[in-house]
Structure formats: structure tokens, C-alpha cells
Design a protein around this nucleic acid. Structure first.
Length: 761
DNA sequence: GAGCACTGC
């Protein structure tokens, strides 16, 4: 036995409770049930299991997107053969067995809410059923929305195979940077909800569609919520909805928010289709010391060790922890004790040794190649057990094969926007009961499993049934701008699925007004129209439009593109932190003086100046920046450039972009000739509120409220205390108020921008 | 002298 295991035992109570017995069961019983017998999992033994298994439930994998959709076109006979081969598997799906009943509901109702449990086949089959009863005379399409890109791509690929066509013909998809659909041919189109919203802004009646299917509606992303609101207005006769008769809507959801959707759509019928998961037993903490908050990492490790020493070999462990910090800590400890532990014996069979634990971290900021480890099978000869320590990413976005045990800390991290303060805070909060079910369900994907919850059953009952929808805790400036663009005047009384609240809306409107997107009457301005169409946050759109007027579009385009990529600058490991910081500092001569925005421009130019992919990769590794991220930067820049050209074409400005100077021919505008003050003034226009003045005591105070704000240690300007004023693109509160992504600005620029802003208003 | 959960255009 090891010190860790003998020290303190954690005891779990509770008879097995499968996720089907969750507290929402009662609500569902009064709805129409379409039950089907429990059956085996989808019998499709394809080698690329991660991808196909995921496609069934509309989930993502971390695989390279490029490898998902194949451009290879198959012959008609091959396609038909393949479709035939897949048919028996489809027929065995719960959804397929209830096809007629489901379809008669959809035919008789304008809106149908469908609850399909994991593995029911809803995302692949329902759209195909509907496709067979499309009125071919109308030449209209079916849209299926997904919250994530990868899901849209993999579902379309799978369904095309089942249907017997090449992707992009009858069945296609459309996601940012990748449109494989044909306006004339495509009848069934999978798209991201962001894409459908974009289509809405260009044609608010969505006239090319006869059916709209909103999948994964329970995830309640801002974009899904907005689409549902628009659809409601579109079909309601008393709001003069243009499609009150000829548009059908199916809202699909995996958990049980059905009542809410049903009520929202005038008591639409709710259908329930059973899934195909294995039962999962849930256990709760009973130990007394759980009442005094013990360290979550510590109790997690005890539980892992305990499971490993009491459960028979076979079946991996998936652990949910709130963040990177906890995960890294747990992995470090486990790596240290694993070699010792493997010499101990099972508590149930003293002659049997325990498997060796192989701890693997999983979170978004982890380099992609390290994320892939969790999918690797361990060598079966090597008597090992995988322990994946993950954030929320494994709750919805990723499916890890082989998991039989789940340990749930019951915590997650959430970014909360404080509209009254204009800053975001990062909080560790308890998850909802729905999240708990989702997490424990991860243990029952391949075989019956067990879930250990690191809290008491009485605490579970106190948890909120559902997580707070995103829209109530985020900045709503962008959603409001979209509403305005589509022509909604009364934002406060719009048909919000969840109203973000008066204060939040008023702050959003004010924000848009100061960005000149709205006029004195709250109507959208010409500038606002352009901002709404740009695939950027309103502040960045404003910066870009300002750059057209200031004649410095090239460098600003580069920087804005960099800012659009999450995790472009990776967090160096603690031991390499100083080294990487110094390298960035000495390499970016202008950035070291003017700050992070200018550094990005310098890094971008350096990246472009390297010729081979190998050189680029090396360079990225050395400076701890993301290679994949930079590839994305180029794509985004190309897209933004097209928008800018369109805007310039409309006569907003006579300045044109220099075509010979694009990124393919090397650095566009050399940093040496870079007009730093022009560039930073553009950013000041979009981020006037995000400025602070240097005080005699070398602290900074915000220009809005006078609060003390500190430069974040990740900034190049962290050690530089001599800026007259600073501009930052993000203001976060953790242990104190931090400005992230900081630039040096002159006091005079602040005045200048304040004056011009007032004039144009 | 900090650490960012996760998406989307």
C-alpha cells in the first residue's frame, strides 16, 4: 500500500443510479414517448472510430479538421453500394424504428421538440427522413445547425455516405472557411449556428429553407438562443412573421430543457427517443471531512488510487477538474506516485498487482499533439490504466474511448462578464445537475460504468438543475448589433429565449453608441451595418474601419487577424517562462517599447519571412506561439481583406488595398516603415474605454472609473513602468484587476481620439 | 510576478 491510499480512505455511498433516473424524469413522463428497446451500439465497425462514433452524436474530436472531409469523389456505383451497406445499421437505430411516428408529428406541427438521448441517431437520421418528403417543386432546403464546426463537417460527411452521394451534392455543409454545399444541388445542409445567423442577416426570412433543425439546443450558446428567437418571430402571425405558414422547425436537444423550448414555441409537442447508453452507477461522498473543504486535487488523487486498487483491470478513468492549474498539479503528483503504486496489490485480491497508472492531461490550451495522447490505446501487454484529467472539454466537445470510471470534482471555471464594471472575472463554480449527468454519462458509452462524485448526495440536490445560459453572463453588444442589423427596434422586448436583463442590454446599447454603430435614436448607422457583417467583435470591427480612414489598413489587418485567434501566444511552462519572455522581448524591438499589439505585428512579419514549414515550426516552438494558430491568422486575414475590399468598393473610402503586397509575397508593410502612432490610434478608437493613465507612483488608473489596474505579467510592458498611458484589449479580474494585451499610448493621442470621437458623433 | 472553462463568424 502507498501512503496516499492508506492515509485516508474516501467512502462513497449510494446504490447504482443510471443517468436515466435523474430528477427531470417526472417532467418528461407527461410528454409523448417514443420508446424503443435497448439495443447494441451503432454497428459500424469502421477503423476511424473516434471520428465516426462522434459523428453519430454530433460531437467533435480533436482530429485535424482537414482530415475530416475528404475531397475524393466516388463513383455512383460505389456510393450506392456504400449506402446499401450502411442501411442495416441505420435501421437498427432507435430513431429509425420510430420513423413513422416521428414524421407524423413533424408533418402535423410547425414546431416539434425532439429529445434524443445519446446514440439515438437523431442528428443523422431525422434530416434524412425529412429529405425524403421535401416538396421538390419548391426547390427549398433543409438546414441543420450545430454549435461546433467539426460536428457540422463530420455529420455531413457521414450522412452523405448513408444517403449515397458525394459531400457537397445532395448533402453538404457550410462552416467558416469551408463551404461544401451547392446552391442548386444541395437539399440538406449542415452548418454552424454562426453561419445560419450570418445568412439571417443577409435574408431575414431564410427563404431558401423549408425546414430548420436546431441541434444541440440544450447547450444554449448565445448564437443558438438568438436563432431560436428569430425563428419564433419569423413564424408568428401576430408579429407579421413572413414565414408563418411555410416553415417547419425541429428543436433537437439531448438533455431535458424540452419544456422550456416547448413553452417558447407555443407549447409545441415534445417527443422523446431513448438512446443507447449503458447504465452508470453514481456514488457520492459520505466521508465527514468532505464538509470541511478539502483540496480538490488531493481528493481526486485519493479516489483514483482507490479505484485502481479495488476495481479489476480494464477500463480507463476520466476525471473532471476545473482548470489547467489543478490538472497540471494532479498529473505531476500522479506521475511521481505511479511507479511506486504499481508494486502494490489489489484490495480485493491480495495476490493480484494493480495496473500502472498513466496520467494524461486534457485542456484547450494544451498543444494539439499532446491532446491526441488521450485517444491512444495503451499497449495491452503493458498492464496499464489510463487516467485522463480533463476540463469541461471532455464533457461535450470530445469523446474519449475506453472510459469506464468517471470522477467528478463537481467544479468548472466560468468567465463572467460584469457589465456594470466593464470587465470579466474568472470564477470557479459548482456545475449544474445536468452537467453532472452529462459527465457521468461519459462512463457508459461502451460498457456499464461507474461515476464517483466528489461531493455528497445532499449537495447534489442543492445544485441548480441547469447551467446558466451563456447569454446572461456575457457582453451582449454583439448580439444586439446583430438584432439591429436584422431590423429589431425594441431590443428590450424582443422574443429572447432568455432575456439578458435590462441593465445588461442598456450597457450594450451604450457601448454600440460610443462605437458609432447606433445613432441618437438607437437606429443602426451605416458604420454599424458594416460592423455587423464583419466577422469580428464590434470593438475590433471599429478598429478596422478606422484603419481604412487612417490609411494604415495593412498593419491593422495583421494585428486584428492575430487577435482573432485564441491561444496564438501559448503559455510557456513555468521553467521556460523567463527564457521565452526574454526572447520575445529582444526579438520584437518595437514591441518591447510599444507593447503587445505591435509585438504581434512583428511576430507576424517574422513568421512570414521564414520560407519553409520546418523553419516556421521551429520558430513557433522557440517563441512559444502556435503554428496552427498562425496558419489560421492567414486565413482570417484573407477573409477580412475581402470584406475590406467590399467596404471600399461601396465608396466608404477611396483608399484601396495594395494587391501586390499581400502576405504571399512576404511581409506586407515592413515594421521599419510602420507608422506606430497611426496604428495605435486606430485601436484607441475601438477601445477608448480600455485606457488607463500612468500615476506618479507608477501605478495606472483607468480613465473610466479611476480604479487601479495592473499590467498583466504576460505582457511585454510588464516591467516597463514609464508609459504615460496604456491601452488594453482586455480587462480581467482574478486576484486583482489586470490589463491584458497592453500598449503604450501618449496622453495627447487620448485627447485627440476623444475629440474626433465626439465630432463624428 | 499571473496562470483562460468552451464555442462561433
Amino acid at each position: 500500500m502507498t501512503p496516499m491510499a492508506s492515509d485516508k480512505e474516501i467512502t462513497f455511498s449510494g446504490k447504482g443510479k443510471s443517468p436515466k433516473h435523474h430528477p427531470f424524469k417526472k417532467k418528461i413522463q407527461k410528454t409523448d414517448r417514443v420508446n424503443s428497446p435497448f439495443a447494441r451500439r451503432y454497428p459500424q465497425g469502421n477503423k476511424s472510430t473516434v471520428y465516426f462514433q462522434d459523428a453519430l452524436d454530433g460531437e467533435d474530436s480533436i482530429e485535424d479538421e482537414e482530415s475530416l472531409g475528404s475531397t475524393f469523389r466516388k463513383s455512383k456505383t460505389d456510393l450506392q453500394l456504400q449506402s446499401q451497406q450502411l442501411l442495416p445499421g441505420r435501421k437498427a437505430l432507435p430513431v429509425y424504428q420510430n420513423k413513422d411516428e416521428i414524421m407524423s408529428y413533424i408533418a402535423q406541427n410547425q414546431v416539434t421538440v425532439l429529445i434524443g438521448e445519446t446514440g439515438s441517431g437523431k442528428s443523422t437520421q431525422i434530416p434524412q427522413f425529412i429529405m425524403s418528403c421535401l416538396d421538390s417543386n419548391k426547390k427549398k432546403k433543409i438546414a441543420v445547425t450545430q454549435p461546433r464546426r467539426v460536428a457540422a463537417i463530420s455529420l455531413a460527411t457521414r450522412v452523405a455516405m448513408e444517403y449515397g452521394c458525394n459531400v457537397g451534392d445532395d448533402v453538404g455543409y457550410n462552416v467558416r472557411f469551408d463551404n461544401r454545399s451547392n446552391d442548386k444541388k444541395t437539399k440538406l445542409k449542415y452548418l454552424t449556428d454562426g453561419m445560419l445567423l450570418r445568412e439571417l442577416m443577409l435574408d431575414k426570412n431564410l427563404s431558401q429553407y423549408e425546414y430548420i433543425i436546431i441541434d444541440e439546443a440544450h447547450e444554449r450558446t448565445i448564437l443558438t438562443d438568438l436563432i431560436l428567437g428569430f425563428l419564433k418571430e419569423l413564424i408568428s402571425p401576430d408579429k407579421n412573421g413572413a414565414r408563418s405558414a411555410d416553415l417547419k422547425i425541429v428543436v433537437m436537444s439531448a438533455t431535458l430543457q424540452a419544456e422550456k423550448f416547448s413553452e417558447f414555441f407555443n407549447n409545441a409537442p415534445i417527443l422523446f427517443v431513448k438512446g443507447r447508453t449503458y447504465p452508470v452507477e453514481n456514488f457520492y461522498l459520505t466521508t465527514k471531512d468532505s464538509t470541511t473543504q478539502t483540496d480538490v486535487v488531493e481528493s481526486m488523487i485519493r479516489s483514483i488510487v482507490q479505484i485502481n486498487s479495488s476495481e479489476p483491470f480494464g477500463g480507463d478513468i476520466l476525471c473532471f477538474l476545473p482548470g489547467q492549474e489543478e490538472i497540471d498539479k494532479a498529473v505531476t503528483i500522479l506521475s511521481k506516485i505511479a511507479p511506486v503504486l504499481k508494486n502494490s496489490y489489489l484490495s480485493t485480491d491480495v495476490k493480484q498487482k494493480v495496473p500502472e497508472l498513466v496520467p494524461l492531461p486534457l485542456y484547450a490550451a494544451l498543444p494539439p499533439n499532446k491532446q491526441l495522447f488521450v485517444f491512444n490505446r495503451l499497449n495491452p501487454k503493458k498492464f496499464q490504466r489510463k487516467v485522463v484529467l480533463s476540463t469541461n472539454i471532455a464533457e461535450t466537445s470530445v469523446t474519449i474511448p475506453g472510459v469506464k470510471y468517471v470522477i467528478d470534482s463537481g467544479l468548472r471555471k466560468v468567465k463572467v462578464w460584469r457589465h456594470e464594471l466593464g470587465l470579466s472575472t474568472l470564477l470557479t463554480v459548482p456545475v449544474s445537475q445536468a452537467s453532472c449527468s452529462q459527465r457521468s454519462g461519459r462512463a457508459g458509452r461502451e460498457f456499464p460504468g461507474k461515476c464517483y462524485r466528489l461531493f455528497k448526495e445532499s449537495d447534489f440536490k442543492k445544485l441548480p438543475p441547469q447551467s446558466e445560459p451563456e447569454i446572461v453572463r456575457c457582453d451582449v453588444a454583439n448580439p444586439i448589433l446583430m438584432l439591429k442589423k436584422i431590423g429589431v427596434d425594441d431590443i428590450l422586448n424582443w422574443s429572447w429565449l432568455e432575456n439578458p436583463g435590462k441593465n445588461s442590454i442598456v450597457m450594450g446599447l451604450q457601448e454600440l453608441y460610443t462605437l458609432n454603430a447606433l445613432d441618437d435614436n438607437g437606429k443602426i448607422t451605416g458604420k454599424g451595418e458594416k460592423m455587423a457583417l464583419l466577422p469580428l467583435a464590434p470593438h475590433l470591427s471599429n478598429v478596422l474601419l478606422q484603419a481604412i480612414d487612417n490609411n494604415c489598413i495593412e498593419p491593422v489587418l495583421d494585428i486584428v487577424s492575430c487577435l482573432s485567434v485564441e491561444n496564438l501566444l501559448l503559455n510557456p511552462l513555468p521553467e521556460k517562462r523567463d527564457e521565452v519572455n526574454e526572447k520575445r522581448f529582444s526579438l520584437c524591438t518595437n514591441g518591447s517599447k510599444y507593447g503587445d499589439l505591435i509585438m504581434m505585428k512583428e511576430l507576424y512579419d517574422m513568421y512570414l519571412s521564414l520560407s519553409s514549414a520546418a523553419e516556421k515550426q521551429n520558430w513557433c516552438q522557440e517563441l512559444c506561439v502556435s503554428y496552427r494558430g498562425f496558419k489560421n491568422v492567414l486565413k482570417i486575414k484573407e477573409q477580412l481583406k475581402q470584406y475590406v475590399k467590399k467596404i471600399q468598393g461601396t465608396g466608404a473610402s477611396n483608399l484601396s488595398m495594395d494587391d501586390d503586397n499581400d502576405e504571399m509575397s512576404g511581409a506586407s508593410s515592413k515594421t521599419s516603415s510602420l507608422d506606430i502612432s497611426s496604428v495605435l490610434k486606430c485601436f484607441l478608437h475601438g477601445f477608448v474605454k480600455n485606457t488607463a493613465i500612468g500615476m506618479p507612483d507608477r501605478s495606472y488608473r483607468t480613465t473610466t472609473t479611476g480604479e487601479v489596474i495592473s499590467v498583466h505579467p504576460s505582457s511585454l510592458l510588464f516591467l516597463n513602468k514609464t508609459c504615460p498611458a496604456i491601452l488594453y484589449t482586455e480587462y480581467v479580474f482574478t486576484t486583482k484587476g489586470y490589463a491584458r494585451n497592453v500598449s503604450r499610448v501618449e496622453l495627447q493621442w487620448l485627447q485627440e481620439v476623444a475629440l474626433t470621437a465626439r465630432k463624428t458623433k
